[in-house]
Each structure stands twice: as structure tokens, then as C-alpha cells.
Write a protein that binds this DNA or RNA. Structure first.
Lengths: 340, 340
DNA sequence: TTGTAGGCGTTATCAA
DNA sequence: TTGATAACGCCTACAA
């Protein structure tokens, strides 16, 4: 076992001063060619690499960015991480991943943990509980301490910072418009309760599309799921004997539960009822029938978020005062759960 | 904007020395009650928190563990991360996530990046390319530098360290035994090429189960996939007009492709052919028919790995010399792709 | 061309 | 009871 070597040790071995070594390794012209040679050779031999921690302390920046998400076992968030990681690595940053488990307390804890010097900035999607409570003091504090923050997907108006969102309203509109275009007359919506911002926005898109086409909005065709765990049963109950020919669901899971329920009712997808989901995951692709969905481009969102954060990190505070919101457009991926 | 406050600043404000502040905040009995009170109140007001980086430098440990995986957009790895994260957080550690993208170079790069002080130890699953090359110098180096390493899932014999694996042979055996128990006579295997250790082991389990039941191994019923991208077409070709009544596939994707191929051949799952997969992901659960699978307990593996690593980290080098391999048992989850 | 000294934020040891 | 000092590993302005 050969522990990491330090400048100090090299200096002692070679009988020169620490700063000479430091300079030599950074190829400073101040140092004589032969000394440089000697030092470099020695350092290479012992595989010297500067200690990141020491550098962090000195430079007051860690070159790592923290990402806090509600859950990782969720294809969308996974793709976002992958996007963040890609850009971060290209730009010489590391990625610290924390999970809030959708709990407010864990979110706050994680943030405090990372804010004490572990991270230069944050990329986050808020926990459901946080949005319910409406308590954002931890975000405010991080910003006050001068730590840039980029919010994505589950964002809020109350905090002024960079944001990356998808065009939920438009995505939903596109989906419903597509259902209308293929001839659907009675389109149900399966959404989440309104404090989840995406649920609210997608509901808005649904209603807008209907109105644009002079359909009227029938509230009895709208289901708002409160408890994820019971969504399957709820959807089954909701769809039981309902006279519909189209369903727009705000995520994959709801869409699939809907398909199951429809099939159990003795109807066929897509012949009798067309179904569109939101979020284009593995599930949508491989389910039978494969799902027509609004795709969210998680990787793209992650990349954008990372780029924005790092830009803030590397710019002077003067230019920091302008915050952008990047809207990542959605795409409609047509598969076999909708008539063509 | 109110940047983070330091001991030094508190000391200056309160006109005491830095060490007095430090001691007071750690509630040292050396300091007088009233001074303590005053300092604590002040610190609380300004929300003082010790700087992690400075602590890391001083203590020569970062309290973060690095996890390097081939890809994150893969349910199994995601669950592992989730397990690592859980245990790590409970024990006061952070988790640094890096992706190798199955590339040897990226794996080496990531490791070097993290080894320079960013991490106290590693939890890894090797990139496919690394296993092909058989070049493990980066692992050896990390270990030589005194950084504990825990390998999981894609592990190798060449490196001596803690490992967490699942009982692939047994898992496969269980699956095939189950097929036999429900009456299958001609069971096909869809596996990967042999340098992927799991492919090899699961193939072994398949053969063992057959032999245990006095079936003979028919090599024409075994398919070894080389290229993930073409797996679907390959499986279709392989299964075309094959006379079988059972399929054991070494992962979800292969299993689903098999089901599709079987159905396209005009046969029914599970009535004509029973199918079992490996890795219990979202896909298996929600596919129709839902998949009977060997479940891998990724979360469990992550938890075990984290526990082992942290134990190494917090123990004296003396006890470090013993390495364990934890074998996480698999379970068979029976669903609708097999006859009952 | 090389070396000295100070500082990044903390803690621990020892002196006052 | 409090404070000065050194050290963790690195860099850099300045001195020699």
C-alpha cells in the first residue's frame, strides 16, 4: 500500500522547497529547466495528483454540483441525472446525488448537508411534500448564501432562479389535439391533484385543447389522483362503464392502468378507446400495446440545467442577476395505443 | 446576500479568539458558561455551520462515497443507488455518482477524478469494456492508495476486495426448476456472451437445473446475444418455428422480446410457452402478461455494499485485511407469463 | 532561479 | 478560562 503523495513529500525527497515543486509541476517559467525535469519525472513516477480537497479549500469552490430529486427509481429523473452528469463531466464537475424521497424534511437536511461546502450549486426538483407545505426557506437560504440554484420540472413561482421546465400545457394540448384529430369525441383526463404543478398545467392544456375545438369540458370525465398507491384501483373505478373513446393520462403509470381497466371492461385499445400518456419511459416503449406518449426529453433538461448552473458558477456576480427559464419542448411519440 | 459565516468572523465580531469560538460551539467544558452562551447565540443567529471542506482536509476524510456504474438508465442500477444512498445518508455520508457509459476510459477517468480526495472509497459495477479488456490497473491503484473498494454485480475474481453479488447460478436454477415443475419439457435459454459474468453464471444455473432433472442440454436451444441493439431481431430469428414450451431469459428485455416473438409465431404465453426473466423491474410488473422473474433486490445489494464500505472506512487498518463476499439471495416472483 | 510566508476553515495541543 | 500556534495540502505574492 502506497498512500497518495503530496507536494511536501516530493519537496523533502528532492530537497527543494514546496513552492518550487508546485511551480515546476505547473510548468512555471520561473523554474530552471533541469529542476523542472527532475521534479516532473519524480512526480510522474509517484503518480502525483493534486488533492482536490485542498484545492477546494483554497479556491473556495468544489467543482461539484449537487442534484436533489424526489426519487431516483423513476425513469424520468434518471434520464435527467444522466444529462446533468454528461455536461458536468465534460466541464470538469462532479455530481453529488441526493434523494428527498418526496419528504420535506429530507430535502432540507440534504440541502444543508451539501450547502456547507460540499457543493458549488444545486439542481433540484422539489419534493411533493415541499410543494404542499409551500415552505421554501431552505431554497431562499441557499440563494442568500450565494449558491446558484436551478429548478427543473417541479418548479415554483415563489423562488426567483434559473428554471428548466417542459411545456406542460402545450404538451398536453398536443396530446389532446391528437386524440381529437383521430376522431375522439369523449376524452377523459387522468391527472394528479392540483398542487402538483405539472398536474395543474397538464389539466390546463387538456381544457384548452377541448375549448379550442369547441368541445365542452365535462368535469365528470376528469379524475384527480391523490394517492399514488391507490391509483390503479381508483382508475378502474373511474373508468368502469364510462362512455369514452379517448384517455389522456398525465403519466405512464396512469396510462397503463387505464389501458388495463379499459380492457377489463371488454373494450379494445386502440380500436374502441385511444390512450395517450405523458413521460416517455421504457414502459411506454415496451408495453403491449406500446404507448403513444408525450415525451419529456429528460436528458435534454438535465443538460440544460447543468449548463445554466455552471454558467452561473463561472461568471462574475455582476452578470448573475438575470434568471432564465428554459422551456424544453415536448414531442408526441405515436405508437400503438392510439388509432392512426 | 449573506455569505456563509466562519469561525474567524464570529471571533472577530465577539472579540474573542478563534479557538475559543471553536471550543464553545463544540460545548467544551474549558469555556465559561456565559461566553459559551453568547457565542452559541451569535452562531445560531448567523446560522453557522462548519465548512465540510475544511473538515475534510483536517480529518483526511471526506465522508462521501463514490459510486461508479455503467449506466443509470437501467432500473437495476437505479435501485442499487437508492440502497446505497439510504444507508450512506443514515450514516452521515454523501454519495457521488459517476457513470462510465460502459466505457473503460471513462471508468478510469472517473476513478482518477474521485480518487484525488473527493471520496473515501468506491462502490462500483464494472463497465462491459473493462471486463472485455481485462485491464484492472485502476482498481489496483485505488486499493494501493488505501481506498476501500466494494464491487457489486459485475465483479471479477482478479481483484481482491469486498463484493456483493447475487446468487446468479442459484437464481437461474430456481427459475428453470420452476419451469420444469410446471411441466415444461423443452426449455430455451436466452443469454449473453460469456465474458459478461452474469451471462455465464446464469447459463450454468440453467444447465445444472436441467441435469439435476435428467434432461439433456440441447445447445440448439441456447442463444447468446452479442449486441444489445440487435437483440430483438436475433431473438425473433432464434425462436422462429422452434419447438419449445419454456423460455428462460437472463434479463427483462430478452424476456419481453421473447414473448413478442412467441406471440408473433401464433403461440400463446403462458398457455403454449411459459417465460421467465431475470431482474425484477417496472417493466416486468406492468407488461401484459406481467412477467414471472427472478428478482435481484438491487436496493438490498446497494445497502449491503454501502454498509461494507463504511465499515472498512471506519475501522482501523488492522482489521481491514479480511474481505467478504456477500451473496444476496434471489427470489422468484410468479406472475402471468408462466402457467400455474 | 529558488525559497519564505500567509491564507483557505477547522481542530488539537499547549501555554498563559 | 482563554488564546496562540501548528497542521491538513495547496497556491501565490513577494523576498532573497
Amino acid at each position: 500500500m502506497r498512500p497518495k503523495i503530496t507536494l511536501k513529500q516530493i519537496a523533502k525527497e528532492l530537497d527543494v522547497s514546496i513552492s518550487t515543486v508546485s511551480k515546476a509541476l505547473r510548468d512555471s517559467p520561473e523554474i530552471g529547466e533541469d529542476t523542472k525535469e527532475k521534479i516532473k519525472a519524480f512526480a510522474k513516477f509517484y503518480n502525483y495528483k493534486p488533492n482536490n480537497i485542498a484545492l477546494s479549500l483554497k479556491n473556495r469552490k468544489t467543482k461539484t454540483i449537487g442534484i436533489i430529486i424526489p426519487e431516483i427509481v423513476h425513469h424520468f429523473f434518471t434520464t435527467v441525472i444522466s444529462g446533468v452528469e454528461k455536461v458536468a463531466n465534460e466541464l470538469g464537475y462532479n455530481v453529488l446525488v441526493c434523494l428527498s424521497d418526496n419528504s420535506f424534511d429530507k430535502e432540507v437536511l440534504n440541502m444543508e448537508m451539501l450547502a456547507n461546502g460540499s457543493t458549488d450549486g444545486f439542481i433540484m426538483s422539489l419534493a411533493k411534500e415541499t410543494m404542499q407545505k409551500g415552505d421554501y426557506h431552505h431554497l431562499v437560504e441557499a440563494i442568500n448564501q450565494g449558491m446558484p440554484l436551478v429548478l427543473f420540472d417541479r418548479v415554483i413561482d415563489e423562488i426567483t432562479c434559473d428554471k428548466v421546465i417542459i411545456d406542460d400545457v402545450n404538451g398536453a394540448k398536443k396530446a389532446v389535439q391528437h386524440l381529437i384529430d383521430i376522431g375522439c369525441k369523449k376524452i377523459a383526463l387522468i391527472s394528479t391533484v392540483d398542487y402538483v404543478s405539472v398536474g395543474k398545467l397538464r389539466t390546463k392544456g387538456y381544457k384548452t385543447a377541448l375549448k379550442d375545438n369547441f368541445f365542452n369540458v365535462d368535469e365528470s370525465l376528469i379524475l384527480k389522483i391523490e394517492e399514488m398507491d391507490e391509483s390503479e384501483a381508483e382508475i378502474e373505478r373511474f373508468l368502469k362503464d364510462k362512455d369514452i373513446d379517448g384517455v389522456f393520462a398525465v403519466n405512464e403509470h396512469f396510462a397503463i392502468s387505464a389501458i388495463k381497466a379499459i380492457q377489463e371492461n371488454g373494450k379494445k385499445v386502440p380500436d374502441d378507446v385511444s390512450v395517450i400518456g405523458f413521460t416517455d419511459g421504457e414502459l411506454s416503449k415496451r408495453f403491449i400495446p406500446s404507448l403513444t406518449t408525450v415525451s419529456q426529453h429528460g436528458t435534454r433538461m438535465g443538460e440544460e440545467a447543468a449548463r445554466m448552473l455552471i454558467e452561473k458558477l463561472e461568471n462574475t456576480p455582476a452578470e448573475d442577476e438575470k434568471y432564465k427559464t428554459i422551456i424544453v419542448e415536448t414531442g408526441l411519440v405515436t405508437r400503438n395505443s392510439t388509432k392512426s
